[in-house]
Design a protein around this nucleic acid. Structure first.
Lengths: 141, 141
DNA sequence: TATTGTTATACTCTATAACTATA
DNA sequence: TATAGTTATAGAGTATAACAATA
């Protein structure tokens, strides 16, 4: 039995709603995880890789999370042997580095992410994809 | 003290990441709530308004949530006197309707949402806004 | 047998407040 | 005094499995 779709009311014209739909669609395509890690966790690996020695607080700030939230996340990544904490010169801080295993996992993840990116952009021409990134940049610079 | 921004690595070129940033920026502007309800909850009011008598299961399906998830959400909306459950002709089902208070709250919410929409689109021309909605539609039809 | 709403339960992600060790 | 990391705790939001009522 085919069910008629629900009427959408005012929703289809709202940017916030359409951004959420698109983000959820992208998240689903990510298969919820790559190498057993969520998009957010992979994002942290990318940031640590690009900023070796970054502190937990600076990393939390970069992704707009409380520093207490970062503790458990780094515990997890460290528990999997992907990230290493090293006490900083300022001995209140932990600097973060990818381990060798972290680098290897990230390299594999980036290849999976490239495939994912091709899938979600598969209905866009290269010019449309660039245009979409540009317009998104105007909303969240 | 000014801190240099973190290097972003491969993230800025990933649609999934940029969609998430834009969606989070829009969510923050929503001030987390309008009339004390989250964007998702307001969305449900809009859907019920556009589909009076819709069942809980069909509503859950429309927003891609489990029907067990919908129970608590409808409990909340009903507890605030915004939504009414009525037993359907198929007596396994609950049909959902907005109450008078629900209609009034939704009308106020829609005005707040229109202001919100203007703010998040304030850096886009009308043509750019249309183009963004169009491109988002290609990602999540 | 299948579906709807419901309950019990658990998991993920997040924040707040208070603590400690350092600065 | 102020900051970095940590802990304890709590609150959203979500899902899975099992159940009763109904089809």
């Amino acid at each position: 039995m085919v069910k008629a779709a629900l009427r959408q009311g005012a929703l289809p014209d709202l940017l916030g709603y359409r951004l959420r739909l698109a983000q959820q669609a992208a998240f689903r395509d990510f298969a919820a995880s790559v190498q057993g890690l969520s998009p957010g966790r992979i994002g942290l690996l990318i940031l640590i890789d690009a900023n070796p020695g970054v502190t937990q607080s600076r990393l939390a700030e970069a992704v707009r999370r409380d520093r207490s939230t970062m503790v458990g996340v780094i515990d997890l990544l460290e528990g999997r042997g992907l990230v290493e904490r090293r006490r900083g010169d300022d001995r209140r801080t932990n600097g973060l580095w990818l381990t060798r295993a972290g680098h290897m996992l990230l390299a594999r993840a980036l290849r999976r992410i490239a495939e994912h990116e091709r899938r979600i952009a598969s209905r866009l021409s290269p010019a449309e994809r660039r245009r979409l990134l540009e317009l998104l940049g105007k909303i969240s610079p």
